[in-house]
């Protein structure tokens, strides 16, 4: 693999809902093995950005390239076959299939993608559950029987079960207590390193950012207004970023909202 070939290359990505422009010409490169965290206030289009890259939403303009291949206008069928197996995704609410047991959830990608028989898939699922710190007896429960933190962990196990090359995390710590949030952050770092995967995380939890990120991009009003290494985030010299990371009410972002 060429080292200068970005894993994900987003160019001029634009997405509108009705008249509301959510993403306005986003350019973003994510290199292999990179851990990028996208920050931004609620409703700034962070989720939309991820969903456009995943192909769950069709952008209005711009291109998305995965490993140099333009996947923007790929047919659903080809995408299923050629692109989706590279992705793992941890959804905000977990999005576990509530009609299935935990192990069936975790092994879903294995049985559908790799045709692994059920008995073997269950063993792999239990191993993946152990990776996220869950005991084997959880495997036979249904998602509704688990606490929020455990659901997140099962969802994480499902996201990493197929050994994806790129993993997306949509607000992984939202709704968790600070300790469980730290556990999840730790697991994310560990899993991503173990797989050697490229990670894209969206969050507004600064503890997550500091723990997970190698690079940080800040999204505001459809643009990336700051991009840099995570170590620089406290010295960005950008008033927007400063306001966001310190969670101040006063600042340019608040003013921008008022102008709307």
């Amino acid at each position: 693999m060429e080292t200068n070939q970005p894993k994900i290359q987003v160019q001029g990505l634009t997405k509108k809902f009705g008249k509301k422009v959510v993403l306005n010409g986003i350019d973003l490169d994510v290199m292999p093995g990179e851990s990028l965290v996208v920050i931004g206030g609620s409703g700034t289009g962070k989720s939309v950005l991820i969903k456009c890259i995943l192909g769950l939403l069709n952008p209005d303009a711009g291109t998305v390239k995965i490993d140099g291949i333009d996947v923007t206008h790929m047919s659903a069928r080809r995408r299923e076959k050629e692109v989706m197996h590279k992705f793992g995704m941890l959804f905000q609410g977990g999005a576990l299939f509530d009609s299935m047991r935990v192990w069936e959830n975790v092994s879903f990608g294995l049985t559908t993608l790799k045709n692994i028989p059920a008995a073997e898939a269950k063993d792999i699922a239990i191993a993946k559950l152990a990776d996220v710190g869950l005991k084997p007896d959880v495997a036979d429960l249904f998602p509704a029987e688990l606490s929020g933190g455990m659901q997140k962990r099962v969802a994480l196990a499902r996201a990493i079960a197929t050994d994806p090359e790129i993993i997306f995390f949509d607000e992984p710590t939202t709704g968790l207590d600070p300790i469980m949030a730290d556990v999840i952050n730790h697991l994310i770092v560990e899993c991503v390193q173990k797989l050697g995967a490229t990670a894209v995380t969206i969050t507004h939890d600064m503890a997550s950012v500091r723990k997970i990120a190698r690079h940080v991009a800040m999204l505001h009003q459809g643009h990336i207004i700051w991009y840099g290494p995570a170590s620089q985030i406290d010295h960005s010299g950008n008033a927007y970023v400063d306001q966001f990371i310190h969670g101040r009410m006063e600042g340019p972002i608040e003013m921008a909202v008022r102008r709307d």
Binding site: G55, M84, F87, M89, Q92, D98, G109
Partner: peptide, 21 residues
């Protein structure tokens, strides 16, 4: 109700990310 709930809780998106139509 079942498919609607799956849609609302992103389970349908999850299916698609697991290469399943």
């Amino acid at each position: 109700a079942e498919i609607g709930t799956m849609k609302v809780t992103e389970q349908i998106d999850a299916l698609r990310t697991l290469s399943t139509s």
